[in-house]
Each structure stands twice: as structure tokens, then as C-alpha cells.
Write a protein that binds this DNA or RNA. Structure first.
Length: 217
DNA sequence: CACCAGGCAAGTA
DNA sequence: TACTTGCATGGT
């Protein structure tokens, strides 16, 4: 019954294997990516991150000093660049005001306190906050995104009116709180979403979750 | 050409 | 409280 999330996880992992998330070389890069990828294709974010790296400014310290307009120009390819430059700056202000720009200091704080603090930063909503908690800080938090919601809706596992917290609860109420599993699980859902559960061209017949031999429902 | 991509905040009623 | 709209590039 409520072991569905576990069964789905095993099936996805069997089908796709480890996804090696988050694709970034540092915790700070994860945070930048989490902000830049809001409603944007990841390939466009990679270009923005590459531009920042190319300019030699892929660090909290350098970006803190960088003029807003220069930052906006460098992250142009990620789209919504004025807005996102503002959001990166808002995070950096919080990051230095509260943690001296140190992810190690941030990791010492409990996840609920951190989540509230992150949600207080303009431009950081539930998904971005949870992505930072899980992928940059290693906290056991389940990330819910548009793919997660769409996949569960297609398989009739949630209701259309269910909000972020309800979808998150679908997973967390029956899974052990384990950052390693939450990390892999969200990455696998994104993989499934991209390959088989697109908005316009779903490949539901081919979806690994529809393999009737070892169905989860 | 239309539609979409690992959201969020501000405005409106 | 519950919708709607603005934000914008790059790929299919």
C-alpha cells in the first residue's frame, strides 16, 4: 500500500541506474545552478555556469563583489537573467550576513531552521530551498519539481489539487529519511520525466513504471 | 510557427 | 485565499 514509493524507487533504479547528482563540482555551484535552473532547461544553465567559470568568478566571494549588471550579462543564457541576477545577489547577501559565505557553517544548522531561512530569501521557494538543502548541504529533504508532480499525476498517485507539501509527504511518510536515497530518487524522477513523461509527447507505453511484469500498484 | 524547460513573487479580485 | 502575469534564452 504505502510502500509504493519504495517499489517505484527500486524500479527506476533498476531501469536507469545511478544518476550521479548534482552535476556540479562544489556546493556553491549547486546553489547557483538551483537558482539558475528555475523554469529553465538545464543546458542553458550549463552555459551560464561555464561563462561564470570562464570569467574566473565562480565563487561566492567573487560574485559578491561583482556588479549586478556584469553578473546579469554573464548568466544571460539561463534566461530571466535580470531576475536571476537579483536572486543570486539576494542569496549572497543572506549567505554572508548569516554564514560568512561558508557552507561548512551552514551545514551545522538543522534542516528546518535552514529551510525557513532559505524561504526568507527573495527568489528561493520550496523547490530551490529543498534542492539546496539536499544537494548542496546533504540534508535528508525530498525535492519536488514539475516532473515529480506530472509523473505522479499520470500514474494517479496524487490528486490535481495536492500542493508541494502533500506531494513531498507522499514520499517521506513511507521512506526512511536518507539523504543518499532522496538524492538518487529525485534525480531518477527527473530522468524518467525527461525521457518518458514529457508534457506534450509522453511515451507512457514505454515508461518503465508501466512494465506490467513487476507493477508497483 | 508554437511549445517547452529541474519556479518564484507580485499583482489582482 | 485563489488565480493570473511577468520574467527571457535556446532547443525541438
Amino acid at each position: 500500500m504505502s510502500r509504493k514509493p519504495g517499489a517505484i524507487y527500486r524500479k527506476l533504479f533498476s531501469a536507469f541506474g545511478p544518476q550521479h547528482w548534482w552535476p556540479a563540482k562544489s556546493g556553491f555551484e549547486v546553489i547557483l545552478g538551483a537558482i539558475l535552473t528555475q523554469n529553465t532547461n538545464w543546458s542553458n544553465v550549463e552555459k551560464a555556469l561555464a561563462a561564470l567559470k570562464q570569467s574566473g568568478n565562480l565563487s561566492a566571494d567573487k560574485l559578491k563583489r561583482m556588479p549586478f549588471k556584469k553578473l546579469a550579462l554573464l548568466i544571460r543564457s539561463a534566461g530571466f537573467y535580470n531576475l536571476k541576477a537579483l536572486r543570486v545577489k539576494a542569496f549572497l547577501k543572506f549567505f554572508f550576513d548569516s554564514y560568512h559565505g561558508s557552507l561548512r557553517r551552514m551545514r551545522l544548522v538543522d534542516k528546518h531552521t535552514l529551510r525557513d531561512q532559505l524561504l526568507g530569501v527573495s527568489g528561493i521557494g520550496p523547490e530551490t530551498a529543498d534542492s539546496i538543502l539536499l544537494y548542496a548541504l546533504g540534508k535528508p529533504v525530498f525535492v519536488v519539481d514539475a516532473y515529480t508532480r506530472r509523473i505522479l499525476l499520470r500514474h494517479r498517485l496524487i490528486k490535481a489539487e495536492d500542493n508541494y507539501a502533500a506531494i513531498q509527504d507522499f514520499f517521506t511518510r513511507s521512506l526512511k529519511s536518507d539523504a543518499k536515497v532522496f538524492n538518487e530518487y529525485h534525480a531518477l524522477l527527473v530522468k524518467l520525466g525527461k525521457d518518458y513523461c514529457q508534457k506534450s509527447k509522453p511515451k507512457c507505453k514505454l515508461c518503465p513504471l508501466n512494465d506490467q511484469k513487476t507493477t508497483f500498484n
